[in-house]
Each structure stands twice: as structure tokens, then as C-alpha cells.
Design a protein around this nucleic acid. Structure first.
Lengths: 215, 215
DNA sequence: TAGATTGTTAATCGATTAACAATC
DNA sequence: TAGATTGTTAATCGATTAACAATC
């Protein structure tokens, strides 16, 4: 007997996972009731077979002649990415990047609530960033416990990033979103996702360079 | 006869290219004269064989017992990513993100010079952001021609991103760095690199979710 | 019904890993 | 020299693509 709930335990191939994120974003803007693999493929410059294969890892199935039900697909992807699950985060570093993130309205849509922002510059402590007061790092532990914080966002300069990571780990945080261009060392039960814009700069410069040498 | 300069024309596998960016960043902090594949692998959680295979696509070779000459490797990677080649860019969107980028000091190291920042909010036009005056979008074409701008950075809300992309393309820009969470439609000779933080947010939430259900 | 589109199996392609000779 | 480490070939593994039957 096939048990479709089993699918939740099937390991997703990494490339498939990456594309599921793209489908998730794409569907946000889709107004139709159904969407075909063909259409999705065209929008993302993929092969329709690829799209169908990827979606076959999910419980949602398509209807011949119609495609996939957009709402159903959205819902399952929201679940996969735990979008509806409220997660509290703190930002460390109240510089321009930290402030930009604290002000970013798009997080709410992903079930992210920013509960505090920290810095250790006395000039910044006490200042308002969005509707949060900048707190000194010594308050970190207390805030993490109090609000059950799961994610720490590192927005400090390269040099202090590892130190901040250690602090976050010591407070019991299990997820780190790292905006500093360094490879952090953390215990293996801590999840780190790097957001390093210098990396995509390298891609951009390389691609432009290729393009130039072709013409 | 083997001609090592041929290597420049060997197509790099995509995964290799991605890792070369990681090696590039890692080497910035290395003080030693030589580094072994073993060491690099440990720092990036890869296999040493993988590192050697990747580096075998480059002209730089290692020395048995010593490893790879750090300076030589750095230099070749700098070339690959065109780091030393000065590239002028404009930022479109003088909101928090655009301002944060305009103020970011790290770009200089990658041969990036920001020459102007644009917005069409009359409130913002004329204001200073870093050492740049915010200009109206109607000046875009003139500035692009005048400074030979190669890259446009899109820091506007989702709704206007495509419109701005069209404008940039119309001005003759060939590289777009897109911070808006949308898939842009551009002619195929234009290079787009997406920097979509909502995508890594999905990864982070998914990984935390997995971690939770395991325990 | 005919035609469009899904979903799966098999074939192909490409990347990683293992093994090991070369070499400093 | 002995030992460490590279660099390459071959074996394995995994992902993509092709083909096509199933089905609405």
C-alpha cells in the first residue's frame, strides 16, 4: 500500500530543493487556478520534465490537460519551508545593514519576527532602529531566553563575526543567518546560512568578463 | 604539445565555479606561503580530492609536500573573477538597502566603483547618500554614457523592479545585480545575478524545521 | 474521442570519490 | 631516502533528460 505521507521523509536532492524555492517565489505572483510544468519551466528557464520531476517529490499531483493546482502547491511549499511557523529572531549589529534588515517589511510574510537589535557601540545603544531600541550585547542571553529566539542575524564586520557567532551559540541559538563574508565555525547542531554579497559580485564580474571576451 | 594557457578556455563545471569563489574568499585570510588541499578542505568542509580536482582546472599547480602557493592561487582567482578590473556601477533605489550598499566600503576591494544613485521620489532627490547626490531616473541614460557604467544594481520594491530593469537595458547596461525578489525578463545578452534574501530565509527555516523534527 | 499534459522508468550525462603513480 | 602531498585516471554515484504510457 502506498502511503503518500511517506513523501515527507524522502530526502530531497539538493538541486531540487533549490528549485523548489524558485517555484515557491514564482507562485506568489500567479493568479490562475492551475499552472502547467511547461509554464513554470518557461518562466524559470528550465525544462518542463525537470519541473515535473521536482514536483513529483511533493504530495501535490497535477491534472493532465490542466497542470498543478496553484493553491495546493503553494500550501505544500509553505509547509516545506515552514513559512507559517512564527520564528523569532534577533539582529546583531546596528550598522546600515542591520538597520536595513530591521526595517525590511517583507519578513512578516515569511513568519519572521524581529524582537531585538544589538550593538556594543555606546553611541548606538538606546537609539531607535525601526521600532526597536538598540540593546547592548550583554542583554543578549536574557532576550534570547525571554522571547525564545531561534535565529540570530549577524550584521557585524568580518573581524567580529566569529565572536558574535560564539556568543549566539552560547545563548542556545540554533540558526544563524550570517551576512559577514567569513566561514563561521559552529557546533554541528547549529545551522548557518551565509548571505555573502561579495560572492555574487564575483559571479557577476566573471560573467561580464566572459561576455566581453566573446564579443 | 601542452599549452597551459588553453586552460582559460576550458569550461568550468558549475559546482567547481561555486567552490572557486569559496577558495577565493578563504585565501584572503591566509597568511602562510603555502596551503594544502587538506587544509582548504577542512576549512570549507569539503574533501581534499574535491579541492585538488577543482584547482586542476586552473593553471596554478601545487607542490608535493607543500601544497599550493597562496599568492599564485590568489592572483589567478583574482583574474578569473576580474577583481582587478575596475567596473563602474549605478544603484537604482535610494531606500535603506540602496543606501546601505552605497555606503558599503567592501566594494573597492572587488574593483567596483559606485558612480551614482537614483530614485524617483522627489523627497529623496538631491539628498546625499554616502558622498553621492540622489539623482532622478531621467538622468540615468546620461550618467551611464558619461561614466561607461557596466552594472546596474536594482534596489527598488518588487513592483517596479522589472520596469527599472527595462530602463537599465535600454541604457545599454549589460549586467544587473537584482536585489528584488522577482525573476527579471531581460534580453539574453544581459547578465542578471539575483540576490534574494528571501530565498536563503526559506533554506534557514527549512533546515531549522528538519532539525526540530529530528529531536 | 482526440489532444494535452502528467508521472515514471530507463538512458544519458556529468560530478564526485577512490585509488594510486608521480614527485618534491 | 622516506613520507607527504599533488594530479590524474577509473569507478561510482547522482542528477538530468528522453521516451512514453497513463489519464483527464
Amino acid at each position: 500500500m502506498k502511503d503518500s505521507s511517506r513523501k515527507e521523509f524522502v530526502m530531497l536532492p539538493r538541486p531540487t530543493f533549490e528549485r523548489l524555492k524558485l517555484y515557491h517565489r514564482l507562485l506568489l505572483d500567479v493568479k490562475e487556478e492551475y499552472i502547467s510544468s511547461e509554464t513554470m519551466a518557461r518562466m524559470l528557464k528550465l525544462q518542463p520534465e525537470q519541473v515535473r520531476k521536482d514536483l513529483s517529490y511533493l504530495r501535490t499531483t497535477g491534472k493532465p490537460k490542466l497542470g498543478y493546482r496553484v493553491e495546493e502547491l503553494k500550501k505544500e511549499l509553505d509547509e516545506l519551508f515552514a513559512v507559517k511557523r512564527e520564528t523569532t529572531v534577533v539582529i546583531v549589529g546596528a550598522g546600515r545593514l542591520g538597520s536595513a534588515l530591521a526595517n525590511y517589511r517583507g519578513f512578516a510574510r515569511y513568519g519572521i519576527e524581529i524582537v531585538a537589535i544589538f550593538d556594543n557601540d555606546p553611541q548606538k545603544i538606546g537609539q531607535f532602529v525601526s521600532d526597536l531600541v538598540v540593546l547592548p550585547l550583554k542583554d543578549l542571553k536574557r532576550v534570547v531566553k525571554r522571547f525564545n529566539v531561534e535565529i540570530g542575524v549577524i550584521c557585524v564586520p568580518e573581524e567580529s563575526a566569529q565572536e558574535v557567532a560564539n556568543l549566539l551559540v552560547a545563548c542556545g541559538i540554533k540558526g544563524i543567518w550570517n551576512f559577514a563574508p567569513v566561514q563561521l565555525e559552529v557546533p554541528e547542531d547549529v545551522v548557518v546560512v551565509n548571505e555573502d554579497i561579495t560572492q555574487s559580485l564575483l559571479t557577476l564580474k566573471h560573467l561580464l568578463n566572459l561576455r566581453r571576451s566573446k564579443s
